[in-house]
Design a protein around this nucleic acid. Structure first.
Lengths: 213, 213, 213, 213
DNA sequence: GATGAATGAGATTTCATTCAT
DNA sequence: AATGAATGAAATCTCATTCAT
């Protein structure tokens, strides 16, 4: 019993510390991802990141050994979280391929516009990132694409969709969705929601689905 | 008379000089636009630009009084040239709105992929540019959009096109076209041409045009 | 009586703690001395020292209040231990001044090469140490020199040795002995021992002793 | 003729610039070598170097792309100049091997003590330098050693010298000579000269030459 | 006793900009 | 027109030190 008493606190203490560290890292990554997405990797200084977190530059180095590493990690978290949300949506939705694809597009754009108003840029322009990060970006992009590709192929197989080529449709869709936050940024909240809806309708046309009405 | 004699050579000399200056400026702008497109404004140093031109940093200041000015000018030339080429195409083509729009899209993507790989990025992510330049970019973007918008509205009016909303369609089209060079960059020359064709077919679906066959 | 009973265990406990503390300090000093010797004072960070000991930086501050203090202490222990070993050798050896000097040199170089590779550098280049430590180093150096000086003067007085000047001989000897580990570091174990022997023979020539054979 | 007039100035202008650049680099290297020698590589900041030259830190990067590179170059110049001076002395001296070796030792120590009061340290403790530089140091050291080795071997062959082993003698000599500036630094000018003389006499004993008188 | 976190001063490095020639 | 040199501000990065737990 006494053993348990001694060990338990120790163990939980260590893991509490671990969790705390994890949380801190997430905070940093979130802030960083936001800034990088907003202004681009090069335009963001560590000072900027530190300031948003209200710590000093030096502290960042306690968690990440370089700006590049922070950049890579930021992308990774961002992409992982995003993909997870979309995956969950796909898993939880039923209906025709069209219904589900539309929901997926809608959700994607909504996340982009509402939650990460600028972070998506990161996935659009890998050319601007240092070498290391590009791989990271590519991989995330692929994970992301798989969700869409699966649905599109399903719809095509079922005769629901008409497409020129799946790859090209995917690319165009992705480009448009990622760009959406840029032009929706300045709209008032309500208009934003409508805009997202319209984007979804518009992009459904890429697989041959006529707009409603 | 003697005045003319003296002045004439001077004038033509001076204009020869002028022309040479103009040519030099064009060279610089082309190099700069390429680099800015490839790596983003911040990631490009004047040293990089100078090196590509095989001159020294200092020389650039003979033509442009700051990096920002060079940036603005580079965008402007790029956009102007581009728009001019598209305008010419529009003027020289006849047929249905669909035919002309498809030709326009095709040309746009072709220029992007073949002639200015990466440079188009500039128009996609204005957020990464210093304030001053954004206006410049926006304006060019508008000039550019007008070409497309006119054709789309014409098609809609003629009952040829079905759209969700012209603005949204324009944005999606633009995003996809500008993004094309990124994913087409690695394809072999022949495949590139086919890819461009497919992009055009795909984007025509945004206005309700079914793909060929 | 009751007092004694209470105090005794306390005292021994406290002294056990003391001993443990002492041992920990020794461990730290040894690690630090090695590192300082290997790379020089400035090139060694407390992080380096901590890592070698598998503790955190912060912990070092429990034992030493600054890097400088750690540095001074490291030198001091190193020097004290070293001098003690040599002193013991001198005390335990008899024979001619030549025999004893040779044994002393041999032992010195052996310790340097085998036990503290690099640590001796510390005594060679005081210029690289912060002001405070230099005094410390100088004093140790003197204590150290006294052993050699006594023997040399004895040999000179006895007519055994011929020297140019005792000071100069001492300096040259010291320099060569301290440098030995650098060039012997890469030799295989056996060759190392022979090398040490040869160094001893060589340095004996500085007091006019012809090499054996 | 006119061609000559145009080309000549151009050519000489360019080479004048070249020479000037070379001179500037030498100035920097001299200052850097002094400081590195005085305090050690790590203890010297670029700020220090810049200040001694009365320029800003940034300027140093116009000539050297990193501190390491500056370090390597500084060593190289120092070593090259040094070796050249010794070589010249060897070439210009005649007499017995003993005479010439003594002159060489004398000159070496004199340069060290008088001209580069601390720079020699650099050659003594390569362990403290970043990897790249060590090779550089080793090579210089070898070039340097060759001068001494040749003379010693000549003296041994001629029966003038008695040695334990050439390698060991060389190492001991080198160590002592390089260390000399440290202990001679504080002597008054006259005493310094005498000290150098005595060092030479002392080190000659390493090859079996009895001191004068 | 020891740790993880944070700090702040200072080091290295980059780069737009200026200027004499 | 063009260059080489220099500058200074700002960015990245390092590290001795402090402190709450």
């Amino acid at each position: 019993m006494s053993t348990e008493e001694t060990i338990e606190p120790t163990r939980s203490a260590s893991s509490r510390v671990q969790r705390k560290r994890g949380r801190r890292i997430q905070e940093i990554l979130t802030a960083a991802a936001e800034l990088f997405g907003e202004r681009g990797y090069d335009a963001v200084s560590l000072e900027d990141v530190a300031e948003r977190l209200d710590v000093t530059k030096g502290s960042l180095y306690y968690y990440f050994s370089s700006k590049d590493e922070l950049g890579t990690a930021a992308i990774e978290t961002l992409g992982t979280e995003w993909t997870a949300r979309l995956q969950k949506l796909v898993d939880g939705t039923s209906g025709s391929a069209a219904d589900r694809l539309r929901a997926l597009i809608h959700e994607h754009v909504l996340i982009a516009v509402r939650d990460h108003p600028a972070a998506l840029q990161v996935f659009l322009v890998p050319r601007r990132w240092p070498h290391e990060q590009r791989e990271s970006i590519k991989e995330l992009r692929q994970r992301h694409d798989r969700l869409f590709r699966a649905l599109i192929e399903e719809g095509v197989a079922a005769g629901e969709f008409t497409v020129t080529g799946v790859d090209t449709v995917l690319q165009c869709m992705h480009a448009a969705m990622s760009q959406a936050p840029v032009w929706c940024a300045d709209l008032p909240a309500r208009a934003q929601y409508e805009a997202v809806d319209e984007v979804a309708d518009t992009l459904m046309m890429l697989v041959g689905q006529a707009p409603p009405e």
